[in-house]
Simulated scan of single mutants.
Amino acid sequence: MARQRIDWRTTSHRGSLRRACGHGNGFTLIEMVLVIIIVGIIFSLGSVMLGKVFSSYSAKQEIAEADWQAKVALERAARELRAVRTATDADLDVASTAQVRFIDTDGNGVCFYRDPPTNRIMRSAQAPNIGVPGDPCGGGDSLADHITALSFSYWASNGAATAVTASVYYITVDMTVADGVYNSGFRTNVRPRNF
């Protein structure tokens, strides 16, 4: 009788693989469905967390931009207010707290005001209108967005509020910035050099 030759390496390898997996047919359908469900839950939680991170970053960027614009606009207004030519009705209009209109030391007309429809602080080149105190400004260039309030207060040297141009010693500028949930106020006191 002829003996049949058996390759022991192949047979033992297949048997050990079956023993290692616990069964010989691979994964069951239930196991595959459970893996898919678990992976889906992990991905959905991860995407929610990433979405929150990205929206938080975007909101912080918008807040920083609105804050920076407001500070730059306030500094520009303060710098130009220091150059009011004289404390006379011809050079400074104090009739309105919603705007400030003046003539600077170079003889240029300047007006800072807030444009309510666009919530912007504007700067225009309009001199005081001697015949019409408090005459509203218009036109000009936008300095900052998201400005929800802008007011100007005029103070005498003794610290009392004044509406008389000749007694103005310093000017207070108040500005409110709002962008989404962000809301912040800025204030500066300016003493013109020639007063």
Rank of each mutant, 00 (worst) to 15 (best):
residue 67 D to C: 07
residue 88 T to E: 12
residue 110 V to Y: 01
residue 115 D to K: 08
residue 86 T to H: 13
residue 98 A to L: 14
residue 98 A to S: 15
residue 31 E to S: 08
residue 173 V to Y: 05
residue 4 Q to D: 00
residue 50 L to M: 15
residue 181 V to K: 02
residue 78 A to K: 04
residue 174 D to R: 02
residue 156 A to E: 10
residue 52 K to A: 06
residue 3 R to H: 11
residue 78 A to V: 02
residue 33 V to D: 02
residue 154 Y to M: 04
residue 104 D to T: 07
residue 15 G to I: 09
residue 99 Q to G: 10
residue 180 G to C: 02
residue 82 R to F: 10
residue 12 S to G: 10
residue 108 N to Y: 02
residue 110 V to D: 00
residue 29 L to A: 12
residue 20 A to C: 09
residue 23 H to I: 04
residue 138 G to K: 01
residue 186 F to H: 12
residue 21 C to E: 03
residue 46 G to T: 06
residue 100 V to E: 00
residue 95 A to W: 02
residue 137 C to H: 14
residue 157 S to P: 03
residue 55 S to I: 10
residue 46 G to L: 05
residue 150 L to S: 03
residue 63 I to N: 10
residue 155 W to I: 06
residue 45 L to W: 07
residue 165 T to H: 09
residue 8 W to T: 14
residue 45 L to C: 14
residue 146 H to R: 14
residue 92 L to V: 08
residue 26 G to N: 01
residue 102 F to H: 03
residue 148 T to W: 11
residue 138 G to D: 06
residue 76 R to Q: 14
residue 168 V to H: 05
residue 121 I to V: 15
residue 4 Q to A: 13
residue 105 T to D: 08
residue 168 V to F: 02
residue 166 A to C: 08
residue 45 L to T: 11
residue 70 A to R: 06
residue 139 G to Q: 13
residue 141 D to M: 00
residue 97 T to M: 09
residue 112 F to H: 07
residue 176 T to Y: 00
residue 83 A to K: 07
residue 23 H to N: 13
residue 41 I to G: 07
residue 66 A to V: 06
residue 8 W to S: 15
residue 130 I to H: 00
residue 150 L to E: 05
residue 137 C to Y: 09
residue 98 A to R: 12
residue 21 C to K: 05
residue 151 S to G: 08
residue 164 V to H: 09
residue 139 G to S: 05
residue 186 F to V: 04
residue 2 A to E: 14
residue 195 F to E: 02
residue 135 D to T: 05
residue 172 T to G: 02
residue 20 A to V: 01
residue 157 S to E: 05
residue 37 I to Q: 05
residue 175 M to E: 05
residue 156 A to G: 12
residue 65 E to A: 14
residue 100 V to F: 04
residue 42 I to K: 01
residue 44 S to T: 11
residue 19 R to E: 07
residue 24 G to P: 05
residue 127 A to R: 11
residue 142 S to G: 10
residue 137 C to P: 10
residue 134 G to E: 07
residue 22 G to V: 09
residue 183 N to A: 07
residue 57 Y to H: 01
residue 164 V to M: 11
residue 101 R to G: 06
residue 180 G to K: 09
residue 62 E to L: 13
residue 121 I to N: 01
residue 83 A to R: 13
residue 135 D to R: 06
residue 28 T to P: 08
residue 152 F to Q: 00
residue 29 L to T: 08
residue 187 R to E: 07
residue 158 N to V: 04
residue 166 A to R: 07
